[in-house]
Structures are given as structure tokens and as C-alpha cells.
Design a protein around this nucleic acid. Structure first.
Length: 577
DNA sequence: GCCAACGTTGGC
DNA sequence: GCCAACGTTGGC
């Protein structure tokens, strides 16, 4: 029966089931239960004050010093069940649990900060701080014949938490049904006892008009996340019944008002008890952090570093390493946040910095404001030549917004990157550490977006055949250039083996940010060397290796010219795939 | 898995 | 703002 011997300091003196701290709250019942309508509230105050008792110096208790405990050791008859908790003369009764509890939430002066800190610690650091001490189920029950034979009543004062000090009153039917509200009690006593004049809290019937009975129309709120992984970012679904919801006597209040679901999120300010304000000062951690919506219901955000891309980036907690970071990085499944470091470590081939995107015109830049075709650019010329097939917009009318983030940034299209990009990119990332701070900043600011080596497509038809379109440059070449720089290369001439036919001209046509990076890097490596691309000799633009199968196929190498393909070494790697 | 203890919130 | 009602949690 007694499962908590440690908490029964004076065995035999009192029913062991009632000597635990929990029982303090019930003492309002006194021996004479029927006349304690006022006694109950009054008796509860001391229960809290007990925690202010001089005896309860946590430091002293923890240090092993047993205080004098004069009150109880003096042999004064204990005031019922208060004795063990308040003035325990038994050394053993100064249990570690008590000390812990008091240290956590014992002294009322400290309770606010303690409660707050406890909550914060629990929430933020997930420390395993015992939240509560469970009393024995049989403890604290007082016969309550006013409700009928066999009925019991129990008062519980919350000893910790935000609602510390709040009193809960329970009743237990002769059949052992535990009632925790007037509604439940009414349902049990329906047809047996009229509770219209029954005051649930005090357990007494009063005379006069009965206060209105509140009927709550609650909406189930799904706040808590599931324990792990994928569901952690999802709202909890229906059916999250708790065991309590099954055992509860209270009938289900029926259909919930769905409309109130929203307001429930904004009503944290309500104060159930004076202490509840403490809880509401700091929103839960989950609410401090803007939790991302499930990827399925959320536009795929732009990747970013330090939130430079997309000013609305959230502070997220990496699901892998736990660090916080800003941005909108997600793991491969895009279900959980993933910091850039873990991203790099993931070896995924779908690096967030490498994407193919489709521009959405900003509508504000000069290019977007141009309405007249220049007639001079390749696109215009192409259109003049074959108006039917003209699909490209005049280059002067293209969006030249430096940020290149259209009004619907979510409209970028993510496409599959090239296969061997990650390693290349890793090298280029290492390059960042070699540059100066200012250079580094330039990498992380607006250039970052371009540095992400996007192949930007204004529309599908605009991609591919236009040789002098800077958007046509091979992604691998761009990356290779960066990689070479990162590796400490002094020039880029050997890049031809990656992209045959590269010349200084084509290098110059690198996406401006990439080119700038190269220049920047070289200026850091070789001060005053100027534009390194300028020094790059034209590479094997016109030379065939004469050994590959395509060259051998050529007539000049004695082939039959069946394949009619350019020397493999002169082909862009991209084209070879 | 139960349920005491605590959190939350909607009615007043 | 209070607090009854009930949802939720975590100790057992």
C-alpha cells in the first residue's frame, strides 16, 4: 500500500497515505469535513507558507545539516497532516525530493523566477527536471458524506509550475470514479443528487441562488509536436487522445468551435492564477522560433546563407547538430531544418547553393521598364529573322535587377543539378575562407546569390542555343574556375580540359559574380595582377585531339565522318552527358 | 497504460 | 482578470 516510505516520516502516527506533501492541500478538510467551507481555503495558505519555513533552507538540507526542527521536535502535537511536510523532525524525512522541490519551487519569493527559469530550462535545454512529484493515489482523500455515503474529497494545491498555488479539488465516488470538475461530478450524481446549489470548490451546499454553471466549448488544440523526425514539423492530427481523455468522466462537450481555434493561439495572456502570468511572459520555444511549415504546404524557399537571400528567413534549429541558424535550409527531404554545415556534410548531390532557377522579372528595374526592343541584340536579331520562332525577349528588356528576386521569389524553379557538383562546390566553399573579411562579406551578401551559381532561365526557350548569352555558360566551367582559384591556381588556362574551347572571352563571360570572385581571389593572391582572366590564353578552341573517337571519325583523321561530332575534348562536359 | 499534476483557455 | 473545465504531460 505505502509505496513511498521515505515520505512517511512518522510511520504510524498518521496514515502514511496522507503524510506526503500532497496532503497539505487537503487539510482544509480538517477532521470535521462538513464544516470547513472556509477552513479549506484558509488551510491552504499554510501549505504554501510551509515552503517559506526557515527550516527549508535547501542549501542546509542538501549539505546534510539537519535543522533543529523545533516545531515538531518540541513534541507539540502536530496539526494533523501538516506536520510531516512542514516540520519534519525525522531526519530521514528531509528527503532529497523535498530538497529538490523546495529548491525548485519552494520559497514563494523565489517561486516566480524559479518557475520561470525552470520552465525555460526545460523548454530550452530539455533538462530532465522532475516536474512533479506524484502522490500516492490514496493520499489525501477525506470522507465527504455530504455527497453521499462513500464519497471522498481531495484538495490538491499545485506546488510547482506556472499555476503554482492553484487548487484542484477532486472527488471520488464510492465506486472509485475520480471526479475533477463540477461537470464530471454532476454527471456521476445525475439523478442522485441535485448539485445546483453545490459549491464544488468548497464541497458544500450553499443557500441562495446558484452561480451559473459554465459550459465550456473547447476546441482541441494541437500544440505539441510529435516526438521526432518527420512529424515534428507537422501539426498534430486528430485523434491525439490522451489516456486521460479516455478515463475522464466528463462527457465530451461535443462539436468544437473550429473558429475559436485561431483565437486560442493568441490568448496566452489569460491568467488562470497569479502565477500564470509567469508562464505567459515567454512564449514557448516553439513559438519563438518560426517553425517552418511542411514543405508540402509551403513554397520552397530560396536557399541562403545567413538569411541573405530572402529577408524573411527564419531562425531555425538544425535538426542534425542542433545549432541555430538563419536561413531556409532543409534536409534532403525538406522536412527538417538543416544548417549549411550539415548540408555540406550530408554529401548530398542536391546542394542548395546550386540550383537552376527561373527568373521572375522584378518589374522595377530598368530592364523591366523597357518596352521597346533594341533591335540590336542577338535576341532581337533572331526575332527579326524568324518572327515566328521568336521567343526571346530583347535583352535590353530583360530584368537586370541585381538582386534578381522577383516579387514572387517562391517562383524559382528548382531543377536537378549536375552530378559532380558537390565536390567542386566544396572546394569553392573553402575558397571563402581564404579571402579577406571584406571579400568574405561580398561573398555572403548579394553576390552570394550569384555565387550560388544559378543557371538562370528566363523561360525554357531562352536556354541553350544562344552562345553569347551569359546564362548559357556551362555551370561546370564556372565551378571549375572557382575550384581552381580555391586550389590556389594562379591562372585558369588548364580549365580547357573541362570545357574545351574555353577562351579568355568565354571566361570573361562568366556570370558576373563568379568572374568577380575570380578577380577578387586573384587580387588577393597576386596583388596588382589585374584581371586574371585577361591573362588566360585562348585554349584549345580550335584544336582537336585527334585521338578521341569523334576525331578519328573525322575525315581529316581518316574517319568516315559518320559521327560528325566535335572532338570530345572540345565538347562541353555538359554536352557530353 | 494509468492518472496525478500541471497547463491552457474560454466563459464570465 | 478570474477560474472552471478540460487538455496534456510525465512519473510511476
Amino acid at each position: 500500500m505505502n509505496e513511498e516510505p521515505v515520505e512517511s516520516p512518522v510511520p504510524g502516527k498518521e496514515p502514511e497515505g496522507e503524510d506526503v506533501g500532497q496532503s497539505t492541500e487537503t487539510k482544509g478538510g480538517e477532521a470535521d469535513n462538513t464544516s470547513e467551507a472556509e477552513a479549506a481555503p484558509e488551510s491552504l495558505a499554510p501549505s504554501d507558507s510551509t515552503k517559506e519555513s526557515p527550516r527549508t533552507d535547501p542549501a542546509e538540507e542538501i549539505s546534510g545539516e539537519i535543522k533543529e526542527e523545533p516545531m515538531s521536535t518540541g513534541g507539540e502535537p502536530p496539526v494533523d497532516w501538516f506536520e510531516p511536510l512542514e516540520d519534519d523532525d525525522d531526519a530521514n524525512s528531509v528527503s532529497r525530493d523535498d530538497a529538490e522541490e523546495e529548491s525548485l519551487a519552494g520559497e514563494s519569493e523565489k517561486s516566480e523566477s524559479l518557475v520561470g527559469s525552470e520552465k525555460a530550462m526545460k523548454k530550452i535545454y530539455h533538462l530532465h527536471i522532475p516536474r512533479r512529484k506524484r502522490s500516492h493515489p490514496d493520499e489525501g482523500w477525506i470522507e465527504w458524506p455530504i455527497l453521499g455515503e462513500g464519497w471522498k474529497r481531495k484538495e490538491v494545491v499545485r506546488r510547482s509550475g506556472c499555476s503554482m498555488g492553484q487548487k484542484d479539488v477532486y472527488y471520488m465516488s464510492p465506486q472509485g470514479e475520480r471526479v475533477r470538475s463540477r461537470v464530471e461530478l454532476a454527471s456521476v450524481l445525475e439523478g442522485v443528487l441535485d448539485l445546483s446549489a453545490f459549491e464544488y470548490k468548497t464541497g458544500t451546499f450553499y443557500e441562495g441562488e446558484a452561480p451559473p454553471i459554465r459550459i465550456r466549448n473547447r476546441v482541441k488544440r494541437k500544440m505539441r509536436e510529435r516526438s521526432s523526425s518527420e512529424s515534428s514539423w507537422m501539426d498534430r492530427g486528430e485523434g491525439a487522445d490522451t489516456p486521460d481523455s479516455h478515463h475522464r468522466l466528463t462527457p465530451n462537450p461535443g462539436p468544437k468551435n473550429l473558429h475559436s481555434n485561431q483565437t486560442s493561439f493568441s490568448s496566452h495572456g489569460t491568467l488562470g492564477t497569479p502565477n500564470q502570468g509567469l508562464c505567459n511572459e515567454d512564449p514557448p520555444v516553439e513559438e519563438k522560433i518560426k517553425l517552418p511549415l511542411p514543405s508540402s504546404s509551403r513554397p520552397l524557399p530560396l536557399p541562403s546563407i545567413n538569411g541573405e537571400i530572402g529577408s524573411e528567413d527564419s531562425t531555425l534549429i538544425c535538426a542534425r547538430c542542433g545549432i541555430s541558424f538563419t536561413g531556409t535550409w532543409y534536409d534532403k527531404q525538406r522536412k527538417r531544418p538543416c544548417c549549411p554545415t550539415c548540408w555540406a556534410a550530408s554529401k548530398t548531390k542536391e546542394h542548395p547553393m546550386i540550383r537552376f532557377r527561373k527568373w521572375i522579372p522584378c518589374g522595377q528595374c530598368v530592364g523591366c521598364h523597357n518596352t521597346v526592343n533594341c533591335g540590336q541584340c542577338a535576341n532581337c536579331k533572331h526575332g527579326l529573322q524568324s518572327p515566328e520562332s521568336r521567343k526571346r525577349i530583347c535583352r535590353k528588356r530583360k530584368c537586370i535587377c541585381p538582386i534578381r528576386k522577383g516579387p514572387g521569389s517562391g517562383g524559382f524553379l528548382q531543377q536537378k543539378p549536375y552530378n559532380d557538383i558537390p565536390e567542386t562546390f566544396d572546394d569553392s566553399m573553402s575558397f571563402q575562407s581564404e579571402v579577406t573579411d571584406s571579400q568574405h562579406l561580398s561573398l555572403k551578401s548579394s553576390d552570394t546569390e550569384n555565387f550560388s551559381v544559378n543557371v538562370d532561365v528566363e523561360d525554357e526557350d531562352d536556354m541553350s542555343t544562344d552562345d553569347d548569352d551569359d546564362r548559357e555558360l556551362c555551370l561546370l566551367c564556372s565551378l571549375a574556375a572557382l575550384r581552381a582559384v580555391a586550389a590556389g591556381r594562379k591562372d585558369l588556362r588548364d580549365l580547357s580540359f573541362i570545357h574545351c574551347g574555353w577562351s579568355s572571352q568565354s571566361l570573361k563571360a562568366l556570370p558576373s559574380a563568379v568572374h568577380s570572385l575570380i578577380v577578387l581571389a586573384f587580387s588577393g593572391i597576386r596583388s596588382g595582377s589585374g584581371d586574371p582572366v585577361e591573362n588566360v590564353k585562348p585554349v584549345s578552341a580550335g584544336k582537336d585531339c585527334g585521338t578521341c573517337d569523334f576525331c578519328i571519325d573525322k575525315p581529316k583523321f581518316g574517319g568516315s565522318n559518320k559521327k560528325r561530332q566535335k572532338c570530345r575534348l572540345r565538347q562541353c562536359v555538359r554536352d557530353r552527358q
